[in-house]
């Protein structure tokens, strides 16, 4: 692969999301220290995430058309919708119950029986299902008193999703999941020196919507095994007990390590499953 191509992928898919996310933590950290109240970092945080994702996708694989011409162009829209639903989740008590997630899961099962899920819509059902599971778990994990737990969980799930998608023949989707992983890594690195929590309910609404959509499209249009996507989507739920176990403080390293290990074990298994049972895009000595 030519160096300029590799450079472009690294710049827009990894370095830029990392740097902008890290810079956002520093900027929002100052605001959080001021008297503006805690709401502003939440809103600015999710806006930062959505902007990082949309711009990175545009620069990496091209800007979406309006209306979207192909399924992959719905991912930025998924980020926006996920963020909006995340905000609604904060303000409308009805959505705070587990029944909301149950309703989305039921809808995801019923939807293909009402509307034929083929062609461009083939990914919707799997994506909805994955999002309901992933988001309902992550929206609980953001309440963990250890501030590194949500970002580490999200980052590892995104990284494993990227490996699973790229390893099963969807390189483009893998790169898009990688944007979320590198943004999470940037937030995590910046959080080491600044005490701002950027991963809020709306932010996980947006990020999990992107990841679930990517996994759903990998299953529908690529060769990512459904089981692999399910295992990755469930990994946050499996790690949830560890996120709230025992006495904690905001930098509880043991808890972060425990949650990270559980997520890595589970989501990593999903990624390995995808590499083994999906179809690799590698052929010859080059792509």
């Amino acid at each position: 692969m030519p160096p300029e191509q590799i450079l472009k992928m690294l710049l827009w898919g990894a370095a830029a999301p990392f740097a902008v996310a890290a810079a956002s933590v520093f900027m929002l950290g100052r605001r959080a220290d001021s008297s503006s109240g805690p709401a502003r970092p939440v809103i600015a945080g999710v806006l930062a995430f959505v902007i990082i994702y949309v711009v990175a996708q545009g620069l990496l694989i091209g800007w979406p058309t309006i209306p979207p011409r192909e399924a992959i162009q719905y991912l930025p829209l998924a980020a926006v919708l996920g963020a909006l639903i995340g905000f609604l989740d904060l303000w409308i008590p009805l959505l705070r119950t587990r029944w909301a997630a149950v309703a989305v899961i039921a809808f995801a099962f019923v939807l293909p029986r009402i509307v034929p899920m083929s062609g461009k819509a083939a990914w919707l059902s799997d994506a909805l299902l994955a999002w309901a599971i992933l988001w309902s778990s992550m929206r609980e994990i953001v309440k963990s008193p250890t501030r590194f737990v949500p970002v580490v969980t999200l980052g590892l799930i995104a990284a494993c999703s990227a490996v699973a998608l790229a390893g099963s023949g969807s390189l483009k989707l893998g790169q898009l999941a990688g944007i979320v992983a590198f943004a999470s890594l940037g937030i995590c690195a910046a959080q080491l020196v600044r005490h701002t929590v950027l991963i809020s309910g709306p932010a996980v609404g947006a990020s999990t919507a992107v990841l679930a959509s990517a996994l759903g499209q990998g299953v529908a249009f690529g060769s990512t095994p459904q089981a692999s996507a399910a295992i990755i989507a469930l990994s946050a739920a499996v790690a949830m007990p560890a996120a709230f176990l025992g006495n904690v403080n905001s930098v509880d390293r043991t808890r972060v390590a425990l949650v990270g290990a559980v997520v890595l074990l589970f989501a990593g298994a999903g990624a390995v499953f995808a590499i083994v049972y999906g179809r690799s895009p590698a052929y010859g000595t080059e792509y």
């Binding site: 192909e70 399924a71 992959i72 083939a122 969807s170 249009f221 690529g222 895009p281 590698a282």
Partner: peptide, 21 residues
Amino acid sequence: GITNRDDHLKSQDFFSVKEFP
């Protein structure tokens, strides 16, 4: 002539044949 390459061409990286058969 190479199944893996054909599958990659059929994916969203190129023709996305399930969307555009």
